[in-house]
Design a protein around this nucleic acid. Sequence first.
DNA 1: CCTACCGATCGGTAGG
DNA 2: CCTACCGATCGGTAGG
Lengths: 201, 201
Amino acid sequence: MTDTPSKPRREQIHDVASRLFSERGYHATSMRDLASELGMQGGSLYAHISGKEDLLIEIVNGASRQFDEALLALQSADLPADEKLREAMYRHIQVVAENLESATVFFHEWKHLSPEAYRKVTHWRDTIDNFYRELITQGIREGVFSPGLDVRMASNLILSVVNWTYTWYHPGGLLSPRNVADSFAEMLLSGLKTPLPQERP
Amino acid sequence: MTDTPSKPRREQIHDVASRLFSERGYHATSMRDLASELGMQGGSLYAHISGKEDLLIEIVNGASRQFDEALLALQSADLPADEKLREAMYRHIQVVAENLESATVFFHEWKHLSPEAYRKVTHWRDTIDNFYRELITQGIREGVFSPGLDVRMASNLILSVVNWTYTWYHPGGLLSPRNVADSFAEMLLSGLKTPLPQERP
DNA sequence: CCTACCGATCGGTAGG
DNA sequence: CCTACCGATCGGTAGG
């Protein structure tokens, strides 16, 4: 019988790399930094991985896959556009909030990827962009969203809000992803301005 | 008589550093990369600057000063809150758009600053945060903004939108900072949803 | 602003 | 997973 280790070594490396890359950045993290946090020597890492960039690719791809899985299932959901937007924002923010470290690496370090992995990320961005644009378009068609909307700018607006979460969200705090999403979605849908007074009685 | 050089060498170094740091990141840019773009040897840079971090500090401080100058003049402006918000978003986005490279460095590389400069940035963030919170508070007091707003989240929402601009804006494109700001401000103020039908005639 | 150099550290490998 | 090492490159300096 073999021991059942708490977590595969490979996964531990991935986790520590996510943390260090997100805190210090990819290039400012050395393989020796990484190894020492895992209690091993620098060279020993290469028994588990084939190179530093492998780790970055794995983290970035993992993050983009999480976004895909969270959002693309919604694409064909039979919901009014405003509810679909609320749910999409919730899922999007949830992925960011529950994977803050890899999300941070994803947003900051993808430019250091070699061409192939780099293209994958730009392609991913287009996919997500399209998701939100279609959602807006659907909403306008349904009459739920304002017909004057610029679809591109509206999708841009939403993406700004959900993505920027990685810069300020604190997982241990009072706000759950649901709270954040509800609050943001409500403001985006209804606007900051006081609704016009109906009429004088 | 001496020549009047097109641009002081010091400034050229600053500009090239902004570009390289924004494209490749601070740690992935070597002093030799920088020097070779300026047509000199690595060591020669130190006739003009005292160290690599000096450049980063200068870029980051320059960016935050630009934001300050653009926004803080508005603080005491005698404008209705909704117009003040439009103008603030315009100025904020303008700073980002007209200084894309240093803005990118500002948002991505500030975590590599040594403690003193690091604190200055976090302090700056609080200042800007307060600016938008006061703007929201003013708007609620005036009855222009919805009384139910969560001030912190509303300011967060606005900051997301204006800051995220650095990730997608293309200076040579069709959209001017004014276009972007108008579009975003309008959506934020009035919301994405179709206004409720007034009443049936 | 250049040449020549410093010690330190980098990612990665060989051999066990 | 360790020891010992590789060539390359790093930020920075001395002396001119």
